[in-house]
Simulated scan of single mutants.
Amino acid sequence: MITLPPSERDLHAYVDHKLSDEDRQTLETWLAAHPEQAEQVATWQLDAQHLRAAMSGGMHLPHNAALDPAFIRQRMRRSSYRQYATAAVLLVAVSVGGLSGWQARDMSFASSVPPMADAVQAYRMFATKDGMASDWTAEKTSNVQGWLDQNFAQANRLPDLGSAGFKPVSGRLTSTEQGAAAMVVYEDGTGRKLTFYIRPPGPKNHLLPSGSRRDGELQADYWSGGGYNYAVVSKADDPAAQLARQAIRQPI
């Protein structure tokens, strides 16, 4: 005796003519009031007819449960479920792989950029050209530290390079992907220049160990402190600049 609403097993039994007359009549009455389920059952009946017709030539063979129409339909549904599950797993794998690939790309890109490359570029763009617009000049006010503090809270103090004959003469604000940066130009009595550069740390809050590197004719000495990265850039072979580097109070 079936119960209503019928289970999927009852519906398959109806399609395969395995219900009693009483249960078949009960189910047909229920299907008449539920057209969506009736349409599904009609589709199964058509499938069953096709399967029986295709296998009609082998009916003399022993019964094979794997060829039962209900079993075949169930197997087809399970296969569909597996395909959906496989597709979902592949989608997750591709998503995770893509994210990992972008992260690896970012890490690779960050590691391929020399330390404080923007500081060296800023020197070449601004310190070597006269008449460039400045945001701070010694003529406006001598308090260059105050000007920097307005834009970089808790930053390390400017290096005092007076013992090497260099003093701040101008400053310029620039920008990076991480935020504002600034360059202060120092000059000695003979017109030789070097620059002090400050910027927020790079990707993933990348602070720098103290170090030094050469880039063509320039040398960059860099370090971190107070949440910022710093560099002093100067001519690599200039004896006056070498004295200035020795005077930098930060360990490099």
Rank of each mutant, 00 (worst) to 15 (best):
S79P: 00
L51Q: 14
A13Q: 11
A127G: 14
I198Y: 00
M59F: 15
F152S: 03
H206M: 07
M55T: 09
E187R: 09
L194K: 07
Q121P: 02
A133K: 13
Q40A: 11
S20N: 01
G202E: 11
K235T: 03
G146W: 11
P5R: 03
H12E: 08
D21W: 01
R24E: 10
A155R: 13
A88Q: 04
H17K: 12
Q45E: 12
R105A: 13
P6C: 07
S100W: 10
G165Q: 05
R24I: 02
D188F: 00
T195L: 00
P209I: 03
S234D: 03
D23L: 10
S108Q: 15
D68E: 14
Y186M: 12
Q49I: 06
A87D: 00
F196T: 02
R157Y: 13
M76H: 12
I2A: 01
P239D: 06
Q219E: 15
L4I: 07
L158G: 03
I252K: 14
G179Q: 02
Y222C: 04
Y14L: 05
K204P: 00
M125V: 09
T128H: 05
Y186C: 06
A122H: 05
D130M: 14
A38H: 06
L173P: 01
A65K: 08
P69A: 09
Q246D: 08
S79C: 03
